[in-house]
């Protein structure tokens, strides 16, 4: 084992083992490029057959709000792409309950089925990952 750098380490003894990757989404969809770039990385990660999960925390929960219509700002609406994740075998989508509540949102406002987690559940899940990548 080496010190975790948050990067992807492929050592001989661990190569081939499926690792647990979590992508943590913490930004609103259009104000910065993070949300879209994060989603692209997630789609690419699907090609490596790893154990991928997505967490939506803080303003990241806004990425999943349904009814987004971006014609007026002339930017691509990428919210439907979250519905494609199932076809990429990425089915573990977790949303932080506290972040939802702080923003006056409920599961009903979201475009995809998710699992809403308490602080403790989210913390446990994060701690159980091999690699956590945050956007």
């Amino acid at each position: 084992m080496t010190e975790s750098t948050g990067g992807i380490e492929v050592e001989e003894e661990t190569a081939g083992r499926v690792k647990k990757f979590m992508f943590v989404n913490r930004k609103a969809p259009y104000g910065t490029i993070y949300a879209l770039e994060g989603l692209e990385v997630v789609l690419i990660s699907a090609a490596f057959d790893q154990d991928v999960s997505l967490a939506f925390v803080d303003d990241g929960v806004y990425e999943l709000v349904k009814g987004q219509a971006t014609k007026g700002i002339d930017v691509k609406n990428f919210s439907p792409t979250y519905r494609a994740l199932e076809g990429y075998d990425i089915e573990k989508l977790y949303v932080d309950a506290e972040s939802l509540k702080a923003r006056g949102l409920t599961e009903e406002n979201l475009i995809v089925p998710v699992e809403v987690l308490s602080n403790e559940e989210m913390a446990d899940l994060m701690a159980a990952q091999d690699v956590v990548i945050s956007f």
């Binding site: 699907a46 609406n77 990428f78 494609a84 076809g87």
Partner: peptide
Amino acid sequence: NDYQIAPAIRVLTKA
């Protein structure tokens, strides 16, 4: 039109 992305080959084949 549904998902706003071009699917990866593996996903396309399955779909």
